[in-house]
């Protein structure tokens, strides 16, 4: 009788110790990780749909893609960007370094256009589209504003 009670107590103690090690310690460690992570600085957010607010040249239809296109979208994965303009089926690859945004669209290995811009605010982007053609390079300055807010839901994935 006494032995079985002792064995039950030992079993409960072992279970408690095991539970503490396998469950309790990791939960505590999780809080540590969450605290540690707050110091990490990720790249600025540029993901989402950007509507061209001001076309400095006044010729918005020259923006690549369909004529008259007034918006483009950026899908962001850290510093890697994918910029989709109009009905292009394959997005242009790009990067963000600091607050500078860069993307380049190629077709059959030939550069079609290049985007160079800077984040001027949380939701504003200003820069240039460089259109490549056999005639040469034409540069179109622009400003764009992100639709919605810069919160996660506006990342436009």
């Amino acid at each position: 009788m006494f032995e079985s009670q002792w064995s039950e107590v030992a079993g409960v103690k072992r279970f408690a110790a095991l539970y503490a090690v396998l469950v309790g310690v990791p939960v505590l460690a999780l809080f540590g990780i969450l605290r540690l992570g707050t110091g990490i600085e990720p790249p600025p957010s540029v993901g989402g749909t950007w509507r061209i607010a001001v076309d400095a040249s006044g010729v918005r239809s020259e923006i690549p893609g369909e004529a008259g296109v007034a918006a483009f979208s950026i899908a962001q994965s850290g510093r890697r960007l994918e910029v989709t303009v109009g009905s292009e089926t394959r997005p242009a690859g790009g990067r963000i370094d600091g607050r500078r945004v860069w993307a380049e669209h190629r077709r059959d290995g030939v550069v079609q256009w290049r985007l160079e811009a800077s984040l001027t605010g949380a939701d504003t982007l200003a820069g240039e589209w460089k259109m490549m053609s056999q005639a040469g390079v034409s540069t179109i300055p622009f400003e764009a504003r992100r639709e919605g807010s810069s919160a996660a839901s506006s990342r436009g994935h």
Partner: peptide, 14 residues
């Protein structure tokens, strides 16, 4: 997080 996320997502959420 620093490689594939961005500032719109707090670390804790990620």
């Amino acid at each position: 997080y620093p490689r594939y996320s961005d500032a719109s997502v707090p670390f804790a959420q990620f």
